[in-house]
Design a protein around this nucleic acid. Structure first.
Lengths: 105, 105
DNA sequence: TTGTCATGTTCATGTTTTTCGATATGTTTG
DNA sequence: CAAACATATCGAAAAACATGAACATGACAA
């Protein structure tokens, strides 16, 4: 068994940002939102809410979760906030997990 | 915007097994369990429960979730049930997502 | 066989977290 | 200021999580 620390078991700290990504992507509504984005596209809350069955405030909440997990970037322009996928981070994160699996599983 | 279907938005069916993987990996305790496995190692419920702070029944539940997401394989030998990481599936799933990100994000 | 112990799952319950919409508040534009 | 857009907060409903007790099964010894 791996990573023993006396009696208890500790998650390596480099896994924690990753944990947020998985938690964020674990929700179906948030997956739905992510899949809406076209390559390189930027969308605002209204557009996403319009394409979903959720209330605008609910969409805003999910966007916040995705943003805190660094899965989405955002920029406020005038009275609108534009979101887009953080491709480099997503690519790096998934790549790291894949490497980990290949090396340690 | 992508994948429009009249008014509502549909998740492509090939994403559903993947969604289960992310949901399974979204929980911290389940991450903890996964990280316990050494390369190629097989562990039973008692060993995992012993290395965690959770009750055996709780561990059993989490193992069931991981198994239903195909993240773990299991085999019953005698009175013990042995679990191990489904490396090929995990590798394939993460690889698919990574490809998707590279192609469509 | 019968009894006992070890292992794992299922069930009922209680707790905690998440989800969601409504409303109120904040910002920016015209 | 008024209108449009987004966010924050709150409470209710739903889902997920954790636990011990009860149950099922297999190993093993008397």
């Amino acid at each position: 068994m791996k990573f023993f620390n006396a009696e208890t078991f500790l998650i390596p700290p480099e896994w924690q940002p990753l944990a947020r990504v998985f938690a964020a992507l674990g929700d179906e509504q948030r997956q739905r939102i992510l899949l809406m984005f076209d390559k390189g596209e930027r969308l605002n809350v209204g557009q996403i809410a319009g394409a979903s069955t959720l209330a605008r405030s609910t969409v805003s909440h999910h966007l916040k979760v995705l943003h805190e997990a660094d899965v989405l970037c955002s920029e406020k322009v005038g009275k609108e906030v534009w979101f887009w996928i953080n491709r480099p981070w997503l690519e790096k994160t998934l790549g790291n997990v894949l490497d980990y699996v290949r090396r340690n599983c």
